[in-house]
Structure formats: structure tokens, C-alpha cells
């Protein structure tokens, strides 16, 4: 059912990563992404995997949950791995394996080189670590609203250029706030129309699209009504944009945020150093 879709997949908790300032998390996540893309050799990739595993432990989110989060990208991962294996050619080396298919071989002979295998493994690790770490820092341990606050704060300098940062952040907050409500409402309206004989599951694509009209119209009507109500309620509570507003909770950096930032800088520097020396001499 629609209700089962949880947006952002935030898991409330009390771990060190949960407690970090969302701005720090964003910055650290960006640094980590840079590290992922700079990694060139086997030691770097081992370090990435190890650090990702450490972060999972620190966040106290179950490994199963995180692996489940990777399921939707499994297909993409497999596909890129196959492409990499077969299409990376380094003809200076003898191939590891070559296909012998009669007639077809005249056109193309699938060949696997050592470099292709390495590239496939490295890219897969890159994508996996990227997804795992961004979700640990951003979606799993940070509520969407806090994240919006962080983006607003980090983009605050843009206000000098007359970019309405506050208004964008407010819009995002309200959108996030209303998503669960609208999902619930869609469910309700679909049930009401099913009770009147609407069939959303059978028939041709055109027929199914048409069956959605009785759901979409009421949904839009109610969404506009809600928007209007909310706007009035906000005005009645003296809202007039970001001007002169104070905040109950001011985001504050703590020692752990600075430590996390410094560690991440060190990690990034380490990746650069290892790239330069390439200890085991297995690299891209």
C-alpha cells in the first residue's frame, strides 16, 4: 500500500552520527564523496570499505537495513560491472579469457582483461560506498526537516545576492511536512472510488490512466484547500517571511563536529598520499 512508502527513511536514534550537527554532516559527506572519486588503487578502496563499515557501526543502524537500501541499485551495479568487464580493453596485456562463438566471433569476440575486472570491482565498490555513506550521514540519521535547516544555514551567504534562501527552505519544509498527509489522502480517495467501482489494476494503460482521474481531481482540490488553510494559519501567526525571525533551536557546532571534520580531512589527505605511492601496485 501507499502508506508503506517512507520518505527519506529517517531512523530516529541517539548515536554519535545522529547527534552531529546536520551542517557538519553535509560537509563531511561531501568530503567523503570527493575521497570516493579520488580513490585510485586497491589500498584506497580497502580503506573506503573499512571506513564505510566503521560508519555503519557508529550509526547503530543494522547492517541488514543498509544492505536492503542497496537493493534498488543492484541492477545498475550489475549492469555497470558487466559493461566494465567486457568493454575495458588494455591490449598491452594478454587477455584473461576470450569467448569462442562460431560465426558471431567474426563480428565481436567478448574478451576479459585483468584491467576490466579491476575496474568493474572498483566501480561497484565506489557506487556501493557512495550510497551507503550518503544514506548513513544524510537520510538515515538526519530528519528531512533538519537537513532543510542545514541547507538554509549553509546557503545563507547567498542571501547577499538577494536569493530568497529562507523562502526556498520554508517551501521544502512544508512540502516534506505534507507528503505523508497527501499519501494518506490518496489512499483514502482511492478506497472511496474503489467502493464506487473504480478499477486501478486491470485494463489497458489508457484505461488505467483514465481510472486515475477520479483520484487526481479530488487530490488536487484538497491539496489546494490545505495550502490555502495553511497560508492563512501562518499569516495569523504573524509569519511574514524570514525577516526578523528568530529560532528556538539554533544549529550549533560541537566538539564532535570539529573532530569529524578533521578526521575526514585527514582521511581525504590519506587517500591522496596512498594514490601517489600506490603501495600494492594494483590501480585503475
Amino acid at each position: 500500500m501507499l502508506k508503506d512508502i517512507t520518505l527519506g527513511q529517517y531512523f530516529p536514534g541517539n548515536s554519535v552520527i545522529h547527534k552531529m550537527d546536520p551542517r557538519a554532516k553535509l560537509i563531511v559527506a561531501i568530503l567523503y564523496i570527493v575521497a570516493i572519486f579520488c580513490a585510485q588503487n586497491v589500498v584506497c578502496f580497502a580503506a573506503l570499505l573499512l571506513s564505510a563499515f566503521l560508519l555503519i557501526l557508529l550509526s547503530r543502524i543494522s547492517v541488514i537495513t543498509i544492505l536492503r537500501g542497496l537493493k534498488p541499485i543492484m541492477f545498475v551495479l550489475l549492469f555497470t560491472a558487466i559493461i566494465n568487464v567486457f568493454l575495458t580493453g588494455d591490449t598491452t596485456e594478454p587477455p584473461l579469457w576470450q569467448a569462442e562463438i562460431p560465426i558471431f566471433s567474426l563480428v565481436w569476440r567478448p574478451t576479459i582483461y585483468r584491467a576490466g575486472v579491476i575496474r568493474a570491482i572498483f566501480t561497484s565498490i565506489r557506487v556501493m560506498v557512495l550510497i551507503m555513506v550518503t544514506s548513513i550521514f544524510l537520510t538515515y540519521t538526519t530528519s528531512p526537516i533538519t537537513l532543510t535547516d542545514a541547507i538554509e544555514e549553509l546557503l545563507a551567504p547567498l542571501k547577499l545576492l538577494h536569493i530568497p534562501v529562507h523562502d526556498f527552505a520554508m517551501m521544502m519544509t512544508i512540502a516534506l511536512l505534507f507528503i505523508p498527509t497527501l499519501i494518506e489522502e490518496t489512499d483514502k480517495i482511492m478506497n472511496a472510488q474503489k467502493a464506487r467501482g473504480a478499477d486501478f489494476a486491470n485494463g489497458s494503460l489508457v484505461k488505467r490512466a483514465k481510472a486515475l482521474v477520479p483520484v487526481l481531481i479530488p487530490l488536487f482540490v484538497s491539496a489546494f484547500k490545505r495550502a490555502e488553510d495553511l497560508a492563512v494559519a501562518m499569516e495569523c501567526r504573524c509569519y511574514r517571511g524570514g525577516k526578523g525571525r528568530t529560532k528556538l533551536h539554533k544549529l550549533q557546532y560541537h566538539a564532535r563536529d570539529i573532530v569529524a571534520f578533521l578526521l575526514m580531512c585527514a582521511f581525504l589527505a590519506g587517500i591522496f598520499v596512498v594514490n601517489y605511492y600506490n603501495p600494492l601496485e594494483i590501480s585503475l
Partner: peptide, 21 residues
């Protein structure tokens, strides 16, 4: 099951939200 839904009519809470035509 659709035939049953025609025989047992259900009016949900705040049914005015289902009006669309």
C-alpha cells in the same frame, strides 16, 4: 470482489472528498 462492493455500499468519512466529475 467488485460485485460485492456494489452490493455493500460504503460511504467513507468526509465523503465529499470523493467528488470529481
Amino acid at each position: 470482489i467488485q460485485k460485492i462492493r456494489y452490493r455493500v455500499g460504503l460511504v467513507m468519512q468526509y465523503p465529499e472528498y470523493q467528488l470529481f466529475d
